[in-house]
Nucleic acid binder design. Structure first.
Lengths: 160, 160
DNA sequence: GAATCATTACTCGGATAGTAGATGTCCGAGTCTTTCAGG
DNA sequence: CCTGAAAGACTCGGACATCTACTATCCGAGTAATGATTC
């Protein structure tokens, strides 16, 4: 089980975008920041845009920016946007193929194993839903107060 | 992100094995129970044996059985045995490729995103670690008291 | 000099290859059972 | 009748294909800026 690597890129990019409000930043610049493959990062940013986390504008002076306040963007939002909403553990209802099974019963709900796994994933998602981009950004500032200014300067330099 | 499908099979098989103590059950019989591909289930059972969850014996009258009490087999044990111990989210330390990074700093520990994701996975694993095969089996019995006897009879019939 | 229009350059967007990991299958090594020969 | 060994059959175990989905890339559609042209 391995999560889509783009999730990490997307989260870092969102934190950086939270420090550059009101301006569109191109995928190329966001990729250059961490030396990531531009086209592939662009794909992830597209997914965020489809999910309503970012807004995108085409053409010169175009790019991406946060679609809403970073306080209202949770880590779960990003994971769902890029990795999909489906659970990692997917009950195939193998009990249905067992002896004495009821063909029309919903074994996803009945099966104790399915319940336990779904319960664990629920706590996982709840945890991620409680963490926001704003909170992450704040903690980064706590460790390194110059971070936002450094990011802004960096993107300004890339502009020239 | 999709978990190895064999995890589901392995958990169901362990529950069934908990109702047939002291006797080896072949992969073929365990597979027939839910109409699963024998060779592939065998592969998963091997992984459980390597992890010390099952014991395996070769030859006629051979097969698999639980290596310890079902109270001491957690769902996490099975997930780790089959799906691996590595986290789903793997910090690639992309901050290291960012501007002004310290090449010898441990960004897995520093990075706030990495911390948040690891924290969420930790709660997930803690949840699974708290659930045992015995508990699952008990709940199944609660809903269907005849289940263990049905399973035993089923395997006896396959014997003949 | 101002306005309009065509050009141009730049960006996102989705369609298209390449690759790693999961899924599925097969045959060999080892072992227990069974059988048969000998004492 | 008992003992021992050899043959046989059954099971796990790991090595070998296949297939899905993640990773990576490329080119086209659309858009805003820009410059030239005309009034």
């Amino acid at each position: 089980m391995k999560m889509n690597e783009g999730v990490e890129w997307a989260m870092h990019s969102c934190v950086n975008l939270s420090w550059i409000p009101g301006r569109a930043v191109t995928a190329k610049h966001l990729a250059a920041f961490y030396d990531l493959p531009t086209a592939y990062l662009n794909k992830q940013l597209q997914a965020l845009a489809r999910a309503g986390i970012l807004t995108s504008t085409s053409g010169p002076k175009g790019g991406f920016q946060l679609a809403r306040d970073p306080e209202r963007i949770s880590l779960l939002d990003i994971v769902v946007a890029i990795d999909g909403a489906e659970d990692a553990f997917r009950c195939r209802e193998i009990l249905k193929d067992g002896p004495g099974a009821d063909p029309k019963a919903d074994y996803v709900q009945i099966c104790q194993i399915s319940q336990a796994m779904r319960g664990a994933e629920l706590t996982y998602r709840r945890e991620l839903a409680g963490r926001t981009i704003a909170e992450i950004a704040d903690r980064v500032v706590g460790a390194n107060p110059a971070a936002p200014e450094n990011v802004r300067r960096r993107f300004d330099n890339l502009k020239s």
